[in-house]
């Protein structure tokens, strides 16, 4: 159990290293356009998370409203 855990960890660590190196190259490639892409993706995901939180909050209010109506 412990051994396999160490194995998985070391594989993960190795994979992360490879990925980091690759993305390092990717993000420094010629025009560095990937940097812009990652910035935009971040902004977009920020907005999406914002909408999701709003959605959840409104959903909670709707539930409360229903309970009030039923009482």
């Amino acid at each position: 159990m412990k051994k396999s855990g160490v194995l998985v960890c070391s594989i993960l660590f190795f994979a992360m290293n490879v990925f980091a190196e690759e993305s390092e190259n990717l993000f420094r490639s010629s025009g560095k356009i990937y940097v812009v892409v990652s910035v935009l993706v971040t902004i977009f995901l920020g907005i999406v998370i914002y909408l999701m939180v709003l959605d959840k909050r409104i959903g909670k209010l709707e539930k409360k409203e229903e309970e009030q109506e039923n009482n």
Partner: peptide, 11 residues
Amino acid sequence: LLLYVIIGGFL
């Protein structure tokens, strides 16, 4: 869809 558009739109 929009993630695809942002990434694909630039690349």
